[in-house]
Design a protein around this nucleic acid. Structure first.
Length: 301
DNA sequence: TGCGTTGTTTCACC
DNA sequence: CGGTGAAACAACGC
């Protein structure tokens, strides 16, 4: 499920593997993926050079020469796989189809062929993702329409103060607040669970009841989880089951497995409409340091 | 085979 | 007007 770390990994792949190359041919077997696209065909990028790639929230933004820009949303199951003429493959996003198997695959809907023989394959087993090709000067307005909040990671990253202010204005479960792209942009279900576990916060805690130290831990937890995810090139979750690397993810997709911190079996509950994995021992529903240690009644006057 | 899955949008309701 | 919660939607695998 491509969230910020998976999309960021894709972005880096485009930057390091494709920037400078020229598109010689495109193959679109599922035109529906371009259903929201101002320019309805990828033919317009043939003959154009890849200039670079940006990211905003979970969107990947690829700039081409000739003032064309392609915005990609991977949604649940998008995948980018770049195949070099040497046979080397670099893959990120959803782990299905198997990156080591044959391409194009049944779910590989788009091929982009480059002048050096490299091919970029875009796959999407769920077909929920989309691509929008447009003149580059439309991109800012396109992104502005999403009303994204500050980034969860990177240069424009949300500050601890911004996070605290935003959370104080919401009474919804903190996990849902983290998923609100208008509050902070880029976090999805996996990294929300991981950040909350790292911060030792119960996912159902009303956002405005988090203590200041808890909010500070959460801010750090967000950064830690996203960084860890990027470091690993994204998390691998297949059919709600995690395939952790070095103990990460710690809780998401790991129901009944032992919490890596305390060994307690991980629980799965529903928060809002979302599955939430957490450790019932590390993440208790208390955020005030000492709820009972408040004996001093105020004198009436 | 109906259910679960996610990001996003929409809508009724305070 | 804005926050909330619920539902709908896309398509697929199990």
């Amino acid at each position: 499920m491509p969230e910020l770390p998976e999309v960021e990994t894709c972005r880096r792949i485009v930057e390091s593997e494709l920037a400078g190359l020229t598109v010689v041919r495109t193959e679109v077997r599922l035109p529906k993926l371009l259903r929201f696209s101002e320019i309805p065909s990828l033919q317009a990028i043939e003959g154009r050079q890849v200039l670079g790639a940006r990211r905003r929230a979970k969107l990947m933004i690829v700039d081409f020469s000739g003032d064309l820009t392609l915005i990609i949303h991977f949604k649940l199951a998008g995948q980018l796989s770049v195949h070099r003429p040497t046979g080397r493959r670099i893959t990120a996003g959803h782990p299905v189809p198997n990156p080591d198997g044959p391409y194009p695959h049944k779910s590989t809907h788009i091929d982009i062929l480059f002048d050096d023989g490299s091919i970029a394959y875009l796959s999407d087993i769920r077909q929920f993702g989309w691509l929008r090709l447009m003149p580059s000067d439309r991109v800012d307005a396109e992104i502005a329409a999403y009303a994204f909040g500050p980034e969860a990671f990177g240069n424009e990253r949300i500050t601890p103060e911004q996070l605290r202010r935003s959370l104080l204005r919401r009474s919804i479960p903190v996990k849902l607040a983290l998923l609100d792209q208008g509050l902070v942009a880029g976090i999805g279900n996996i990294y929300a669970d991981e950040a909350l576990h790292r911060a030792r916060i119960h996912p159902g805690t009303p956002a405005n009841l988090l203590s200041k130290p808890a909010t500070a831990r959460l801010w750090e937890g967000i950064g830690w989880a996203l960084e860890r995810g990027i470091e690993q090139g994204g998390a691998s979750i297949v059919h709600q089951k995690a395939y952790p690397v070095d103990g990460f993810p710690a809780v998401h997709g790991r129901e009944q497995e032992a919490c890596p911190v305390c060994g307690t079996p991980i629980k799965k509950i529903t928060v809002g409409t979302r599955g939430a994995y957490y450790c019932p021992r590390c993440q208790k529903k208390r955020t005030r340091a000492h709820p009972a240690a408040k004996p001093a009644p105020e004198s009436p006057g």
